[in-house]
Design a binder for these strands. Structure first.
Lengths: 156, 156
DNA sequence: TGGCATTAAGATAAAAACATCCTGTATGAT
DNA sequence: ATCATACAGGATGTTTTTATCTTAATGCCA
């Protein structure tokens, strides 16, 4: 598994939010329901994304979460860096603490280009592209296709 | 992290064994020391590799572990399948239980080719190639270069 | 102002991964 | 035979990740 469960929730949640009308506050409860994710855990993840400045949060009645301005430009890499920590793209595939061009593990040379492709992919995929794909109805965001589809339909 | 710590230990251990003269029994204790891995934990990993038919084990005095015949042809994929379980190459990058060409997540199309490259790499890398690289002295197998190097030197 | 809905945050719990411990069993050497 | 050595396997402990619970803080609205 390349991304932790936490990061997967974060990405799913943000894509979901990008499918919703911009500027409207979205409840944690609704996101969790649409994704089939544990609400209390997702709340922590969203909190973390707020600290990472990808989201705004508003308390009280009429509160909820909102994508930051230019939210659709957010990349998967930005998300992953917040949830997995910096340097998760730098880890040695064999787990060595020090592994670089100068002092490589025996897989370093072969693994490096693939790692680069993963990085490039994560950097190229934006919430814009992904949410558009989901809204087309051809791609599922969670293991609850009916729940999600109905959720999308009710909003647009 | 693409491979679990357990898989990393397994790969490191097998590469190390492939650097040693074939047919000679190798002690868990020595492998662990050379890799800087916890000996009792490594023992479990090696046990598992025996069940997976990559190693032979011998008990009692003069006992130890031996690479299976044709051990140098073992691929990283064979190892990973044993330690991570089948289907670890089939996991959806967003964590969906069902995600395939027919019912894809919004990342499926973009992720698939990279996943294929990872699979191909793991299938192409053999203990032969990797142990040869390590024996050349240009590549480190553990975060204990001096310990490993001296270990290799003492055996040829 | 009081009541309610919502996120924030800290404590706690559960599960999985990682690691250790102890006893059993096989095997070669004395 | 007995002993020392090394793997096997089960129980236990620790750490990290994932998940839940509870209380506080905030803000809307009547």
């Amino acid at each position: 598994m390349i991304l932790s469960r936490t990061t997967q929730y974060a990405i799913q949640a943000l894509i979901y939010m990008a499918t919703q009308p911009r500027g409207v506050k979205i409840l944690n409860r609704n996101i969790a329901e649409s994704l089939g994710a544990p609400p209390t855990y997702l709340a922590k993840v969203l909190q973390n994304l707020c600290r990472g400045n990808l989201l705004y949060s508003y308390r009280g009645k009429q509160g909820g979460f909102c994508l930051q301005e230019d939210g659709e430009k957010i990349t998967l890499m930005q998300i992953a860096v917040i949830t997995e920590g910096h340097g998760f793209t730098k880890d040695c595939v064999l787990g060595l603490k020090v592994c670089n061009d100068a002092v490589p593990c025996p897989m370093h040379k072969q693994w490096h280009p693939i790692k680069q492709e993963i990085v490039k992919l994560l950097e190229n995929q934006t919430l814009d592209t992904l949410s558009t794909a989901v809204m087309s109805g051809k791609y599922q965001l969670a293991d609850l296709p009916t729940a999600l589809m109905s959720g999308l339909k009710s909003h647009g």
